[in-house]
């Protein structure tokens, strides 16, 4: 059978969202997809549809009005997904930190896997970030394939069976293995 998971790494699709940046990083992402830097040689294509994308490129400090859209786009993307924060202001807030309408970085709202620094960041750094994201994507794909043991052994506290702290997280090793 044609194995989709095996080929996911070969053609990751990118979703790009501008959460209030100055366009500097956005035009650098556009330059990455253009001939000189050519991110498309990794099979990357820019889609406008969150439901088909694997990698989420976010630029800009999250502004008050774009934060709901940011979280909504993130939740609409299917697992596994990787988030890259592009530019200083999406990593920490950058020069916009503590301004009235700014929320100081993407990682306040969604988990970020790769941080790409620089104001404005350069296409070389973005390519490095995406290549790093591909490794993380592969790792996440593998973790999803693992058979998941839902609970550890139940503990007995005050003669009540307690399962509250026994659920395993993704990727966490069972002690007996």
């Amino acid at each position: 059978m044609f194995d989709l998971k095996k080929y996911r790494k070969k053609s990751p699709w990118i979703l790009h969202y501008n959460a209030g940046s100055c366009n500097g990083c956005d035009i650098e992402i556009l330059a990455c997809l253009a001939p000189k830097y050519d991110l498309e040689r990794f099979g990357v294509i820019n889609t406008g549809n969150p439901k088909q994308s694997d990698i989420f490129l976010v630029t800009g400090p999250v502004t008050y009005r774009s934060r709901e859209r940011l979280v909504e786009l993130y939740t609409q993307m299917p697992e596994p997904k990787v988030v890259i924060a592009v530019g200083s202001c999406s990593c920490t807030g950058g020069v916009f930190r503590d301004m009235v309408n700014v929320e100081d970085g993407v990682d306040r709202y969604i988990p970020v896997d790769v941080y790409v620094a620089g104001c404005a960041t350069s296409p070389e750094l973005i390519i490095d970030g995406v290549v790093k994201a591909l490794e993380i994507l592969e790792q996440k794909t593998k973790e999803m394939e693992k058979p998941l043991k839902l609970f550890r052994e139940a503990t007995l506290q005050n003669s009540i069976v307690n399962r509250r702290h026994t659920a395993l997280k993704v990727g966490e090793k069972d002690e007996e293995d």
Binding site: N18, G20, S21, T63, R65, R69, F96, D98, M99, V102
Partner: peptide, 15 residues
């Protein structure tokens, strides 16, 4: 058009 409002004018006078 107001999705990217960051408040730069105000920061210029206070920060």
């Amino acid at each position: 058009v107001g999705f990217v409002h960051r408040g730069i004018e105000r920061a210029c006078t206070t920060k």
